Simulated assay, not measured.
Amino acid sequence: MTHSFDKNYWDEIWHGDRAAAMAAGDPNPHLVREVADLTPGAALEAGCGAGTEAIWLASRGWQVTAADIAAQALARGAERAGAAGVAERIEWVEADLSTWEPEARFDLVTTQYAHPSIPQLEFYDRIAGWVAPGGTLLIVGHLGDHASDGGHRHGNSHGHGDSHGHGDSHGHGHGHEDGGPPASASVTAADITSRLDPAVWEVETTEESQRTMAGPGGREVTIDDAVVRATRRS
């Protein structure tokens, strides 16, 4: 089934019976690993859903702008941030990321599986423009079936894969009827890095990884991720 990934689609998802499960789970392991060596500053999570990653960043000292198109997702996130004691470190912004422009640039811009209404790579181009000089761009996307190596990790500067839980339970772009993302929302690491001008960006991580997690009903689900981390040159 083809989705437009517009506001109506996401509002329906977040008012549906899967919303509670989407708001649960641990922060994305790629995010946890990739930002561990960064000095906390101003961060934007683009397509934050119910804020699992935003709350994790805030708990580690980041001042976070958490943006999403679904008001219900943001309401869940704000409630959870209050319970976690980090409400003052997160600004929740209801925004269509295909048209929204932030007022400032960020030390970290990250997105985990967000599926906008515009083409996926154009979305990545947009959020890359919101990174301040010296700042970090971290993209975690669904790895497309067209990956040349069949979806396994390659070119990884960190040299290890993950078998931890996946952000799939709470990130945008999940809950598709067939259990996986559509081709239009899937990318390869090379797709992403090809958009990053070497004169502007230093690519720190380019990774394609495959791992498993427990899915609905306890069945094992295979997760294929494309991960790119890059630093904007000063």
Rank of each mutant, 00 (worst) to 15 (best):
L38A: 11
G82L: 03
Q63A: 15
R76Y: 13
R80M: 12
V93A: 07
C48V: 02
D107R: 02
T39S: 11
L97P: 04
H115E: 15
A114K: 02
G47S: 01
A83K: 13
V35W: 06
A54S: 12
E122W: 00
G41A: 11
A46E: 03
T65L: 04
D37Q: 15
G82S: 12
P27V: 14
V32H: 07
E53C: 14
A58M: 04
Y124M: 15
A114W: 10
H115A: 14
A43V: 08
T99Y: 07
I118K: 10
I55E: 03
I127G: 06
D96K: 07
P119E: 10
P116Q: 13
W56Q: 08
I69Y: 03
L44G: 00
W56C: 06
A81R: 04
G134P: 01
I90F: 06
A81H: 02
R89Q: 14
A42L: 13
P29R: 08
R76E: 03
E103N: 13
G82T: 13
L38F: 04
G82A: 08
A46T: 09
T52Q: 12
A50F: 09
A36V: 13
E88F: 03
S98E: 12
I69F: 05
E34W: 04
L138F: 00
A67F: 00
T99I: 15
T52W: 00
Q72P: 01
V35L: 10
V109Y: 04
T111I: 12
L31W: 06
P40W: 04
L108Q: 05
L121T: 13
I118M: 14
A75K: 15
Q63W: 02
E79L: 07
E79R: 06
P102R: 11
P119C: 02
W100R: 05
P40M: 01
R60Y: 09
I69V: 14
E101C: 00
F106I: 09
P133M: 11
T111G: 04
W92C: 01
A66V: 11
A67D: 02
